[in-house]
Amino acid sequence: MSVVTLKIDGVDVAIAAGSSVMQAAQEASVEIPRLCYLEGLSTVGSCRLCVVEIAGINKLLPACTTEVREGMDVTTQSPKLQDYRRMVLELLFGEGNHVCAICVANGNCELQDMAIAVGMDHSRFPYRFPDRKADLSHTQFGIDHNRCILCTRCVRVCDEIEGAHVWDVSQRGEFCHITSGLDQPWGDVDACTACGKCVDACPTGAIFRKNDTTGEKVGDREKLEFLVKARENREWVR
């Protein structure tokens, strides 16, 4: 396997060719903000938080989908990136109805973490207050579309890891939402195995266990990575 060397925020990293800038950053212990990226799942590059600057390229590129190249010089933090990331988060907070105070994921929410990481304490854009619903029809889990940021981790984990493809995105643009089955109540979808992987994959409080109340959702996100590696490498011990 060939190895390429590159610089991430001035740190030299050597990593297998074909890896992503995101993986290289992890190797270099550089934290890159992200929401749609989850180790073990395919990448979609949709949240745009992980965009980085690469010397010699005049476009911002997402770290999760950009392959490493020999001699790359990557900057993950700059005033411009910080400013743009903050705006992305402001847009996300304005788009849904994110009320941390009563959210199951309060204190354990990646959206919240990202807001803190980029210093977003309020949104300069007006809140849209969309009329969205919660679906508690499943016996064990619930989905509250108010808190969904459309990262599609649930869609991917259900399709790629569990193989049930309960979820998909329907509609378009601002009306996009996560749909179960034929836009049925989640509890009515035959394909659901109630495995709970989407609960663990969800970065916010959108998908949760039904008995969880404020701040009680403590997602085990590493579990998916563990599961993927367990299957690939036959290592069933964490």
Binding site: V169, R172, Q184
Partner: peptide, 14 residues
């Protein structure tokens, strides 16, 4: 095809 995939495509196109 999964139902959600069909629904997703059917609602994407105007």
């Amino acid at each position: 095809l999964p139902l959600s995939r069909v629904y997703g495509v059917a609602t994407f196109y105007h």
